[in-house]
Design a binder for these strands. Structure first.
Lengths: 195, 195
DNA sequence: CTCCTATGTTTACGTTGTTCACATTCGCTG
DNA sequence: CAGCGAATGTGAACAACGTAAACATAGGAG
């Protein structure tokens, strides 16, 4: 079943296949493009089969969105990878910048995936769900609060300002990504940003 | 026809009636709730009638969104009304704050309207379109750039920083509004914000 | 080997956006 | 005032969608 070309009645791992097909559709056309019927069609399966793995169309979209969110986390992690400054303070700042850069890079490089990642913008227990974590086992939101916690630990940020700072950072970056993705801003350059 | 209770074949001003019905639906359920058929149903008219006034379903949603955008401008104007500080610099700052407060107040008070106002987030000639202007004849984006231009005029902001500042302000406020509306943040208090 | 259960299919229903041929009315021209 | 063209609304139809119910098939536990 693992090298599955045995096109038999049972698929083997339809749930993963549906997620993959859905992600492909999302990449091309955003959340609205990942329709239940087209997703099942791509997986070579009947529409109703999806209901064995997802409670509803929205549930499928949320699952695809969670996968996209995990890729967002990976994008942030990749942008943080070069944070090798010997100075702890500078390194902490680099990692915070990495959050913003990775967030915005993902939104610009894969607007469709970004769109579905923000689909039904978290019930927020969602923001800590395991399936939205990147390779380091942290969600995008956790990567942000981690970076800010580092600054607090170095005395660069007052503890009681950590939470407001998180909200402000996230707002700015998210707002910029939104405006740049589906808004009036379309420039190619990777703009330097504050965070 | 003006005091129209003559329920005749022709409606009189169906376009306005559809916009009103659509706005009502948007207030209750956001952009997705303003469906072509339900809108025409509320206006007491057949589905196809909408196509005499709007090119498509999306076109109808955009038009309702423009109306919501105009209300957003009015919300900003209302929050700027109390900017009566004798000191010009303080007054300019008050007006900038008014932009942010009005924006966020609108998003929190009428999330459905805010949602459809951001629907198909501007082709950006849209952001200067007359139908998105408030009572002072300015669009929300213009109200922001106006406030920043005042700061420049008073020497409080360097001219070459006006445009980046506009983007940053808008990003922050928009991001916060988005996160507060459809995101994880749900507090009642009107938080004080920087801008 | 047998049966239970998980998984996929078929068919059907209601709703949506959209189009086309047709009906009705408004307002202008003669 | 008569009548005609243009504007506006209707009705029926189509394809695509999400969803549900009854049925078919296969895989694994006993």
């Amino acid at each position: 079943m693992e090298a599955g070309n045995t096109r038999s009645y049972h698929h083997g791992d339809l749930r993963a296949a549906l997620l993959a097909a859905g992600y492909e559709l999302a990449l091309a056309g955003g959340a609205d493009a990942v329709t239940l019927r087209e997703t099942t069609r791509r997986a070579g399966v009947s529409p109703a089969a999806a209901y064995r793995h997802f409670a509803s169309h929205e549930d499928l979209q949320l699952a695809v969105g969670a996968a996209a969110m995990a890729d967002l986390a990976r994008s942030i992690e990749a942008h943080q990878a070069g944070a090798g400054d010997p100075e702890p303070a500078a390194r902490a700042r680099q990692r915070l910048i990495g959050v913003g850069d990775g967030y915005i890079a993902f939104a610009l490089d894969a607007p469709g995936a970004f769109d579905i990642a923000m689909f039904g913008l978290f019930t927020m227990e969602h923001a800590f769900a395991p399936e939205t974590m990147g390779d380091t086992g942290r969600t995008p939101f956790q990567l942000l609060t981690d970076a800010l916690a580092d600054l607090v630990g170095l005395g660069l940020l007052r503890p009681e300002q950590a939470e407001p700072a998180a909200i402000t950072c996230w707002s700015t970056v998210h707002g910029f990504a939104t405006l740049a993705t589906s808004g009036p801003l379309r420039q190619h350059p990777r703009p330097e940003l504050d965070a």
